[in-house]
Simulated assay, not measured.
Amino acid sequence: MGNKLQMQDWPYLKKYEKENEALKTKTLEENRIVFMGDSITEFWSLHCPDFFAEKPYINRGISGQTTPQMLIRFRADVIELKPKTVILLAGANDIAGNTGFSTLEMILNNIISMVELAKVHQIEVILCSVLPAYDFPWKTGSFPAEKIVTLNKILQEYAVANTIHYLDYYSAMVDERKGMNIQYTDDGVHPNKIGYEVMGEILEKGIDQIT
């Protein structure tokens, strides 16, 4: 996407526009679940298509996105699809500064706004921990590990205080450097097939708890 188009559609609302319109004409699945996130969410369907096959799972991840972008498209890509549940995994790209400077408080505020929008529309929320990362390949030397630890602590505390389901991928995937375990990733940030299989097991248990 060129810079001019990106300025015209900063949150990338057009990415799933056609798919969303098609879903509105389909019979609504009773347990429709939308996955909202960035590349870690988007690439899940590519690495593990069987995980999504024959299930009411809708992937609305967009690579590189930050929480303010997700907040803008939350209505189009989540609420209007009338899901029972939204899986929200976000924050790493904010820490990387993909759309400019962002504090942990700013990240939390955007996530709170998405959670509150979901609640107003009777959508159950599963709030996920940010995955471990020792460094970002596209922004080397940023060493986000400690910020991720702190953000996850803040997210978990918010979830507990507000009776929101919190899903801890981090603890299952972290290594001794507070990065992602090498067996679960090829670049230190994005899960590989094995990593997504670990996440899938954790997620399915979380879904079972609320259904």
Rank of each mutant, 00 (worst) to 15 (best):
166 Y>E: 09
62 I>L: 08
150 T>F: 01
94 D>L: 13
48 C>E: 15
210 I>N: 09
78 V>F: 00
23 L>N: 10
195 G>K: 03
204 E>V: 05
119 K>V: 13
37 G>P: 07
149 V>Y: 01
118 A>D: 03
100 G>A: 15
170 Y>C: 12
198 V>K: 10
18 K>L: 14
82 K>A: 07
76 A>N: 15
128 C>I: 03
134 Y>V: 00
165 H>T: 13
165 H>D: 05
132 P>I: 06
52 F>M: 08
49 P>W: 02
121 H>P: 03
198 V>T: 03
149 V>M: 07
48 C>H: 12
139 K>C: 08
88 L>W: 04
115 V>I: 14
155 L>S: 08
71 L>R: 15
62 I>W: 00
47 H>C: 14
73 R>E: 08
206 G>H: 10
139 K>A: 14
150 T>E: 10
208 D>I: 02
37 G>R: 05
171 S>D: 04
190 H>V: 08
14 K>N: 13
70 M>Y: 00
123 I>P: 06
180 M>A: 01
161 A>Y: 09
136 F>D: 00
7 M>C: 04
48 C>Y: 09
167 L>P: 04
197 E>W: 03
12 Y>P: 00
211 T>S: 12
94 D>W: 09
52 F>I: 06
199 M>S: 04
107 I>S: 09
208 D>H: 12
139 K>Y: 04
80 E>P: 03
57 Y>A: 07
75 R>F: 11
87 I>D: 08
145 A>P: 02
194 I>C: 10
134 Y>S: 11
157 E>Y: 06
7 M>T: 12
49 P>C: 04
104 L>R: 05
201 E>A: 11
6 Q>K: 12
211 T>Q: 12
184 Y>G: 14
24 K>Q: 12
144 P>C: 10
43 F>E: 13
33 I>H: 04
42 E>R: 15
86 V>I: 03
167 L>H: 04
198 V>C: 12
16 Y>N: 12
11 P>I: 00
64 G>M: 02
30 E>C: 10
8 Q>C: 11
143 F>V: 05
165 H>N: 14
64 G>S: 07
189 V>E: 01
23 L>D: 14
15 K>W: 01
141 G>W: 00
97 G>C: 13
169 Y>Q: 08
169 Y>E: 12
167 L>D: 06
65 Q>V: 03
175 D>Q: 02
121 H>D: 12
110 N>V: 11
57 Y>Q: 00
109 N>M: 13
58 I>P: 09
132 P>G: 06
